[in-house]
Simulated assay, not measured.
Amino acid sequence: MNATKILQQGRQPMIRFLGKRTTPSTIDHTPKVHPASPTHSLPESFASYRQKAQQHGPLNQTNKFSTGIGSSSGSSLGPIEAGKGSFFDRSELPQRFQRLSWSQAEIEAVESGGASLFA
C-alpha cells in the first residue's frame, strides 16, 4: 500500500501544453449548413425535418397491417416465405450445399484429438 502512494506522488504527465488554458471570448453557436448537405439549406423546424428523415426506412411511415411496431401479433401478418434464391435453413439448400455426414474414421480422429491418425 505505501509503495503505491510513493509511486503516485512523483507522477509527471508525459504531455506538455504550451501556455495557459483559455476559453475563447466569443463562440458562434448559430446553426450552419453542413458542407456535404445535399440540399445546402437548414430545415425550417424539427417537425419538418422529422417528416423527411430516414433511419432504416422512413420514420413517419406506418405499416399497412398495424399502426405501430408490436401492435399486432406476428401470425396475423401472414405467412413468412423466403424469397426466390433465399433459404431459411441449410437443409433447404440443394444437395451439393447441404452438410456432409461424418464418417466413422473422422469421428474417431476428432475424439482422439487426431492422435489416432498417426499411431
Rank of each mutant, 00 (worst) to 15 (best):
T30C: 00
L18I: 15
A3E: 12
P24H: 04
R96G: 03
T67D: 10
F118L: 14
Q61L: 12
Q51A: 15
H40A: 15
S37V: 07
I27Y: 08
F65Q: 06
Q12G: 03
K52A: 14
T4F: 06
G85I: 06
I107P: 00
I6V: 12
M14L: 13
G70C: 03
W102C: 02
P31S: 03
S25L: 08
Q95H: 07
S75I: 10
T4Y: 03
Q12H: 07
A3F: 08
K20Y: 01
T67H: 05
L59P: 00
S66D: 14
P24V: 02
W102V: 12
K5Q: 12
G85F: 08
Q9V: 10
R21I: 14
L7R: 14
Q61K: 15
R99H: 08
H56D: 14
T26F: 10
S71A: 14
Q54C: 08
S116I: 15
G78N: 04
G70A: 04
L77E: 07
K52E: 14
A3Q: 11
L42F: 07
T26I: 10
R99N: 11
F87P: 00
V33L: 01
Q51N: 11
T67Y: 02
R16M: 11
R21P: 15
R90W: 09
K20W: 00
E111C: 06
A115I: 13
A105S: 12
F118V: 14
L7C: 12
T67W: 02
I80N: 02
E81G: 03
G70S: 03
I107R: 08
K20L: 13
Q98L: 02
Q12D: 09
S116M: 06
G68I: 05
G83I: 05
S91W: 04
A53E: 09
E111D: 09
G78W: 01
A115P: 00
P79T: 10
G74W: 02
P38V: 13
P58F: 00
S112G: 01
E81C: 06
P43H: 01
R11K: 13
